[in-house]
């Protein structure tokens, strides 16, 4: 029943008790998917999204439990409430998938993304780039006489904002990891 989010003890069951049913509103959700770290598991997840026409805004994956051979896939996706529920149910029935958690609706969570951003500029623009980097708490991890590579961690919005500011100054390349997310609190 987990995938349908039916409250225990409720007797009028609907998967969308709290939101309008089959609404047209597109929502963005962050899903944490725990999977067996076996060959092809990422292809299964990605194939599900492409095969059924779902969107992926961001996706990160790495092994998180070496002994248990478990990987955590964090997917940021968007769709109507019905599509989001369908995505979760479809993910849940992939054989090597252990759990699917919707961090967007299951209480508060933290989301972080890391970006490496190359800015090529000279003179006053170089100084301005460093000033802005300081405001955003970005670190300089590489420098030449005409370029910097900044390392920046934060929410996707913060990284977007930093990149937008750097654009007129000489933004030349951006590499982003995609979102990693965890539920706040003890469990």
């Amino acid at each position: 029943m987990n995938a349908l989010q039916i409250k225990k003890g409720a007797n009028k069951h609907s998967a969308y008790n709290l939101r309008p049913t089959f609404s047209d509103t597109v929502e963005q959700h962050t899903l944490a998917v725990l999977v067996d770290n076996e060959a092809g598991v990422l292809a299964r997840v990605i194939g599900l999204f492409s095969g059924r026409g779902y969107n992926i805004d961001s996706l990160t994956v790495a092994e998180v439990d070496r002994a248990g051979h478990l990987s955590r896939i964090t997917i940021v996706t968007r769709g109507t409430p019905q599509v989001i529920e369908q995505i979760k149910a479809q993910l849940g029935r992939i054989v090597p998938v252990h759990t699917v958690n919707d961090l967007t609706v299951e209480g508060p969570s933290v989301e972080r993304e890391l970006a490496l951003i190359k800015v090529t500029s000279e003179g006053e623009k170089r100084v301005e780039a460093l000033r802005l980097a300081d405001i955003f708490r970005a670190k300089v991890v590489d420098s030449t006489l005409s370029s910097f590579v900044f390392e920046l961690t934060g929410t996707p919005d913060k990284i977007d904002a930093f990149a937008d500011l750097m654009r007129p100054i000489g933004l030349s390349e951006v590499a982003r990891t995609g979102v990693a997310a965890l539920r706040r609190g003890e469990d």
Partner: peptide, 17 residues
């Protein structure tokens, strides 16, 4: 038995997995 079948096409008032 498959939760993904429920509410896929038609809104269901009483889903039973």
């Amino acid at each position: 038995i498959d939760p993904s079948s429920i509410n896929k096409i038609i809104h269901i008032d009483i889903p039973i997995v």
